[in-house]
């Protein structure tokens, strides 16, 4: 396996904005002059199913799929989905997740159960977890749709790119009207990541 490849997995539920996050990340890699591939399967996923987006970058990327156990970072928009995704996580990998809780109808049927506290469960297994009320923070910033860029801000320090490049990628990928507010969300995410480090240290 190529050693310089970095793998980021972004997961959520249909309609949560998973795809914009992976677009901005991929744009960043292009601006940095590296190779990048991204893979996601749409289709049925639009109707409330799980959405996963694989982003791989480095000097030369072959397949667009992250093998199990190889994700450096997992970004999750939903807490149970974060738990579901750990099969992909590398030893010492980071999971940044929103505390958003989306209980599907099937979990009201009595046959299946949504875990009481997926994040607590996650923390018993994975050492590096950042969980935050992303929906609430995004709303405070002015728009619930900012969750994706906020979470991108949270993991930005781990990507190894200059922050200015990430900002440029946001400017390139977000509609002009929303650039400022997205940059704000991005900065907020960086700040929260720093805070969570000092807390867990």
């Amino acid at each position: 396996m190529n050693n310089d490849i970095k793998n980021v997995l972004i997961v959520g539920v249909g309609g949560q904005g998973v795809l914009l996050a992976s677009e901005v990340l991929s744009e960043t890699v292009m601006l940095a002059g590296l190779d990048v591939k991204k893979s996601e399967v749409h289709g049925m996923s639009q109707r409330g199913g799980v959405v996963t987006s694989h982003v791989k970058f480095g000097t030369k990327v072959y397949s667009p799929i992250i093998p199990y156990g190889q994700a450096d970072i997992i970004v999750s928009f939903e807490q149970a989905e974060a738990l579901r995704s750990i099969e992909w996580l590398k030893k010492n990998g980071l999971i940044a997740t929103s505390r958003t809780r989306l209980v599907p109808p099937i979990a009201s049927s009595g046959k299946f159960f949504y875990p009481d506290d997926p994040i607590a469960e996650l923390k018993t297994k994975v050492s590096r977890v950042i969980a935050l009320d992303a929906d609430k923070i995004a709303l405070e910033l002015g728009n619930s749709r900012l969750v994706n860029i906020l979470l991108l801000g949270v993991i930005s320090g781990e990507l190894g790119f200059d922050i200015t490049i990430l900002n440029d990628a946001i400017k390139a990928r977000v509609k002009p009207k929303f650039v400022d507010i997205n940059l704000l969300a991005f900065a907020k995410g960086q700040e929260l990541a720093k805070e969570s480090k000092t807390v867990s240290a």
Binding site: V13, V50, Y68, A80, E87, P104, I106
Partner: peptide, 19 residues
Amino acid sequence: VAMAEFEPEQLFPRPPVLC
């Protein structure tokens, strides 16, 4: 073959549904 570090979680499924 490189194996996953963490065991897969057995969670509820999230099938697509009528909106």
